[in-house]
Design a protein around this nucleic acid. Structure first.
Lengths: 188, 188, 188, 188
DNA sequence: CATGAATGAGGTTTCATTCAT
DNA sequence: AATGAATGAAACCTCATTCAT
C-alpha cells in the first residue's frame, strides 16, 4: 500500500521534471503532468497541496541532490589538487547525467517569482562549505572568502556543461583545462 | 493611416521585462502586458506576430545589449590588468543596474523550450571574443581557450551579483577579491 | 469519479442544431452552445475534441438519420408505384418535421471546408441503393443508373419542401403532382 | 479614376468568392479578404457598408448571373426537346465552370440566417418562368406547375454536377441519361 | 479615396482546481 | 486513495469596425 503511493508520487515528480525540460514552466500543466505520470489530475492533489507547492517540493528535493552527489564522490584522504578536480568533474558529470533535473533547478532558481517564496538550500551547501573551510584551515587552498571559492569552482564549469555547440570530446578538453586553471588559482 | 508608434512598441517591451521579473514567464500573459503597457491586447499583435516571437524578439535585442555595454567601457589603451577589472566590474554593474533585463535574459536562456528555437547571439559575443584573442596575441593573458577565459571572467561574478543575502558593501568586497583572483589566474 | 452524462452530450448536440439554424455556422460559437446547453464552455471539450470534430460528429450522426427514417417507412410488400410515393413523401415529411436537422446537414454538406475533411455517408445510402437496385431487377422501374434514380426521387422534392413562399396546402398540391411526375418517369 | 474603383470592388468580390470556397463563411474575415484582394481592411468599408451587406450584395449579383448565363444560351427557334437539353446542359456547365460562385451561392442560400434577411431573386427567375410558361402554352411540354417543372429541370442535375467521386466522362454519361429522363417526363 | 494602426468584444481552447463516485 | 467529470477563470489570438493621416 505504502509502496504504491511512493511510486505514484515518484512518477508525478518525474513527469514534472521531464515536462519542464521539454516545455518549460509555462506549458507544463497539471493535466499534462497527470497524463505523463499515468494518473488522474485529481490524484496529483492527493500528493501535493497545489501546483506551486508541488514545484517547490520538487525543487527542494532535487536542489539538495547535487550536494549529496558531490559529497559521495569526495573523501577525507583526498588532498587539495585531487579534491578540486573531483568537485569540478563531478559537478560537470552531474549536469550531463541529469540534464532534466539540472534544467529544472536552473529554471526554477532563475525565476524570482518561484524561487523568491521558497526557503531552502541550507543543509547540502553547508557540507560543501565545511569542506572548503577545512581546506583553508589546512592551508591547502588560499584564504579567499567561501562565496568566491564556490563561485570559482562551480560556476565556470556550468558554461562548459551546457554548451551544446561543442562535441563531447571538445568539452572534455575544455573541462581538463578549466580544472587546471582553477587548481592554479586556488591551491597554495 | 497612422504611423506605427515607437513609444508603444517600447512600452510593450518594457512591460514584458517588468512582468517577467515580477511574475516569471508563466504568469506573464498578453493581457497583463497590455494592461501594464497601456494598450489593448490586440495592439500587441500589431507589433509582434505572437507571444513566442515577441519574447524571442525582446531576447534578441536585450541579449546583445550587455555586449555593447561592456565594449563601451573598454578601450585600446587599457592593459591586461585594468581590462579584466573593467570587464568584471562592468558586468557586475550591468547586472545590478539592469536587474529586470538580466533576469529576463537568464530566464529565457535557461528555458530550453524558449531558447531552443532561437538562434541569435553572434555579433556581440564576437567582439568580446576578438578582444580576448587580441590579449592572448599580445601575451598579456595566458593562452587558455577563449571559451574558458570567458567562463572564468563572466560566470563567477554572476554568483556575487545575484546574491541578495549580502549587503551592497559585502558584495563590493567580494567583487574586489574576485577581480584579484581572476587577474592572478589569467595574467602572465 | 463521475460517469459521463448522456443527457449533457445530447443537450450539447441539440444546442448546436438549434443554433446553426438560427445563426448559421458563423455565429454559432462554443460559448453560445454552452449557454444554450446549460453547461460550461469547458464541458463541451470533455465530449468533443474540438469544434471541428464536434460538427463532424454531429453531421455523421444526423446525416444517417434520414436514411433510417426512410427505410422505416418502406416494406417488402410495397410495389413500385407505392414505393416511390412513400419515398418521396417521407423525404418531404422528414424535411418538414426536422427543419433544424435538415438545415444543419444541408449547410454542412454545401460547405467544402467542413464537408471536405469528413468521410461518412456509406451505410444508409447503401440500403437505399439496394432498394432501388431490387426494383430495377424486378423490372418495376426503368433501367436508369442508380445515381440518376436517386437524384430524380430526392432532389426535386427538396425544392418544394424548402419553399416557404407557399402555404402548407399549396405545397401539398405540388408534392402530389411531383409524385405523379416521378412515377410516370420511372415506372415501367 | 472610376476604372480604378471598379477594379478594387471587383477584386474584393473575387477575394470573397475565393475565400468562401476555401474556408467557408466562418473562416472568411475582412482582413483575410483584404489581404487576398490586395487592399487595406479599411478600404473594404469604402465599397460596402459592412460585412453582412457586402455578402448580400455579392449574393444578389451572382445569384442573378446564372439566369443570364442560361438565357444567353437559349433562343426562340429552339423546340422543346432541344430547349430542355440546352437548359440542363447549360446549368451543368455553369456549375462546373463557376465552382466558386456556385459554392458561394449554395452556401449563402442554405444558411437561413444569411438568406433570410435578403430579398432578391426576382428578375432572372421570372425570365426563366416566362420561358417555361410559353412552352406550356405552345403545348410543347406538359401542363405541370411551373415550380415543379423548374425543380425537375434544375435540381437533379445538381446532384451530378457536385459529385466529385465520379470522373468527368462518367458524369457526362449520367448527364446525357438525365436529359433523356427529363425530356421523356416533360415533353408531350 | 485609401491606408495601416488601433481596439473592445468575443472567438476557441486550456488552466488549476473541485466534485461526486 | 483514486478517479474522470465538471467548471469559472483565464489563456492566446482574431474579429469587425473605426480612427487619424
Amino acid at each position: 500500500m505504502r509502496k504504491k503511493d511512493d511510486e505514484k508520487e515518484k512518477s508525478i515528480k518525474e513527469a514534472v521534471i521531464k515536462l519542464i525540460l521539454q516545455e518549460g514552466f509555462h506549458g507544463t500543466s497539471i493535466s499534462k503532468i497527470a497524463k505523463v505520470a499515468g494518473v488522474s489530475p485529481a490524484t496529483v492533489y492527493i500528493y501535493f497541496e497545489n501546483k506551486e507547492v508541488m514545484l517547490q517540493d520538487i525543487y527542494s528535493e532535487y536542489s539538495e541532490e547535487i550536494f549529496e552527489y558531490l559529497l559521495n564522490r569526495v573523501n577525507q584522504e583526498m588532498r587539495g589538487r585531487q579534491l578540486i578536480e573531483v568537485l569540478v568533474k563531478s559537478y560537470y558529470n552531474y549536469i550531463r547525467e541529469h540534464k532534466e533535473i539540472f534544467s529544472f533547478v536552473e529554471q526554477f532558481s532563475t525565476c524570482p517569482s518561484l524561487a523568491g517564496s521558497c526557503r531552502v538550500e541550507i543543509k547540502g551547501i553547508n557540507n560543501i562549505n565545511n569542506l572548503i573551510a577545512e581546506m583553508k584551515n589546512n592551508q591547502v587552498i588560499r584564504d579567499y572568502s567561501n562565496d568566491n571559492l564556490l563561485a570559482i569552482i562551480f560556476y565556470p564549469v556550468k558554461a562548459i556543461a551546457v554548451n551544446n555547440h561543442k562535441s563531447e570530446s571538445e568539452r572534455a578538453v575544455l573541462l581538463q583545462e578549466m580544472i587546471q586553471i582553477i587548481q592554479d588559482a586556488l591551491l597554495i
